[in-house]
C-alpha cells in the first residue's frame, strides 16, 4: 500500500492512538521505576510526591549487605564488561571462528564475572537468587536447543506417519496445565533426592518447553531445501556431518529465535521454581516473597527488584526485536 498518498490528518490520528496505546502498555513499568527510586514513605503517599529526590537505597538494600566505598568504580567496570560482551555478541557473525565458539566464550566470561563479584563486594541473598536464575536459564537453553534441533531436523525431513504422531502428541502436551506435571515432579523429586536442585528444575523446564521448541525448530528446518544437505552427502558427508557442518550454520536465525523464547520461558517461570525449589530460589520466586503483605517498606524493595529483573528483558527486546517478532509471528506465516 506504499504507493498511495496518505491523508495527513488520518496519520496524525493513527499515531496519536498508537502513542496512547504505548502509554497504556508501559505506564506500570515507568511508575514502578519511579517508585524504586523513592523512599517507602514517598511511595506510599496518597498524592504522588513529584518531583522527589531519587535515592538508590532500595537497590543497595536489595543487592548488597553493605555498601563499599569504591562502588561507583566497580559499577563502571562492570558496565564496561557488559557493553563489551554485548558488542562481541553482536559482531559474532563477522568473526572467522564458528559462532558457537564465540557464544560459548561470552557465556564463559560472563560466568566468571558473576562468580567473582561476591568476593569483591558483600552481596545479599538476592544476588544468589540471580545466580540461580542464570544457571537455570543457561542450562535450560543449552539442553533444550541441542535436543530440540536434532528432533526438529528429524521431524522436518522424515515423511513417515510416526513423525506426525510425535508432533501431534507434543501439541497435546503443550496444552496441559503445569500443575499436572509439577506435583508428580515434586513427589518423584523427593523420592530420588533431586528436590531443591538446579538439575531437576532444568530438566523439568526442558521437558515442559520441548513441544514448543520442536515445533518451532521444525518449521525453520522445513524452510531449508533438501538439496542443501543432499549435495553435502553426495560429497561424502554422513547425515550427521551434513547436519552439523552444513545445516546448522545456515539455521542460526531460527536457532536464535527459538533460544530467545526458551530463555524467556526459563527466566520467567514462577510456578515450577516455586514448588521444586525450597532454598535455591530463582528471581521470580524471590520477588514473590515481597508481594504478600501491606508493609510499605516492602513495596519500594519490590519495585527495585522488579526493575532489576526487567532490565535484562528490556535488553532482549531492544537487541532482538526482529527475532522476537518473527518467533511470535511464526504461527502467522505457517498458518
Amino acid at each position: 500500500m506504499e504507493a498511495q498518498r496518505k491523508n495527513p490528518v488520518a496519520m496524525i490520528a493513527i499515531n496519536a492512538v498508537l502513542i496512547l496505546w504505548l502509554v497504556y502498555s508501559v505506564t506500570p513499568f515507568l511508575w514502578t521505576m519511579l517508585n524504586s527510586l523513592k523512599t517507602p514513605r514517598e511511595a506510599n503517599s496518597r498524592i504522588p510526591v513529584f518531583p522527589f529526590d531519587p535515592t538508590g537505597d532500595n537497590y543497595a538494600e536489595l543487592w548488597l549487605n553493605n555498601v563499599p566505598d569504591n562502588l561507583p568504580v566497580l559499577g563502571f567496570i562492570l558496565l564496561l564488561i557488559i557493553i563489551g560482551l554485548i558488542g562481541v555478541g553482536l559482531l559474532a557473525p563477522r568473526f572467522p571462528i564458528p559462532r558457537v565458539a564465540t557464544y560459548s566464550g561470552i557465556v564463559a566470561v560472563g560466568g566468571i564475572v558473576v562468580l567473582v563479584i561476591p568476593s569483591l563486594v558483600n552481596t545479599a541473598e538476592f544476588y544468589d537468587y540471580f545466580i540461580n536464575s542464570v544457571i537455570v536459564t543457561v542450562g535450560t537453553v543449552v539442553i533444550s536447543i541441542t535436543i530440540g534441533c536434532l528432533a526438529g531436523y528429524g521431524l522436518a525431513r522424515y515423511r513417515g506417519i510416526i513423525g506426525v504422531v510425535i508432533l501431534f502428541a507434543a501439541l497435546a502436551f503443550r496444552a496441559l496445565p503445569r500443575m499436572a506435571f509439577v506435583l508428580p515432579y515434586y513427589y518423584l523429586g523427593q523420592a530420588v533426592g533431586l528436590y531443591d536442585t538446579h538439575l531437576l528444575l532444568i530438566l523439568t523446564l526442558v521437558a515442559v518447553n520441548q513441544p514448543f521448541t520442536v515445533w518451532m525448530l521444525r518449521s525453520f528446518f522445513m524452510d531449508i531445501p533438501h538439496e542443501v544437505e543432499e549435495a553435502a552427502m553426495i560429497d561424502g558427508c554422513t547425515r550427521l556431518q551434513a547436519f552439523t557442518r552444513v545445516i546448522i550454520p545456515i539455521m542460526w536465525p531460527g536457532i536464535i529465535t527459538t533460544a530467545l523464547f526458551t530463555l524467556l520461558l526459563a527466566y520467567n517461570e514462577f510456578l515450577l521454581a516455586r514448588i521444586l525449589m525450597q532454598s535455591n530460589w530463582t528471581l521470580p520466586v524471590a520477588l514473590s516473597s515481597y508481594t504478600g503483605g501491606e508493609d510499605a517498606s516492602q513495596l519500594t524493595l519490590a519495585a527495585a527488584g522488579s526493575v532489576s529483573i526487567t532490565l535484562p528483558i528490556v535488553f532482549v527486546i531492544i537487541f532482538f526485536q526482529k527475532y522476537l517478532v518473527k518467533g511470535l509471528a511464526f504461527g502467522a506465516v505457517k498458518g
Binding site: P284, L287, S306, Q321, L324
Partner: peptide, 19 residues
C-alpha cells in the same frame, strides 16, 4: 507494546498492581 507480554509474569503483575 510487547513489554507487558514479554516481561516476567510475576514481575509484570506486580508492576501493574503497584499502579
Amino acid at each position: 507494546a510487547l513489554l507487558p507480554f514479554i516481561v516476567t509474569p510475576v514481575v509484570g503483575t506486580l508492576m501493574f498492581r503497584l499502579t
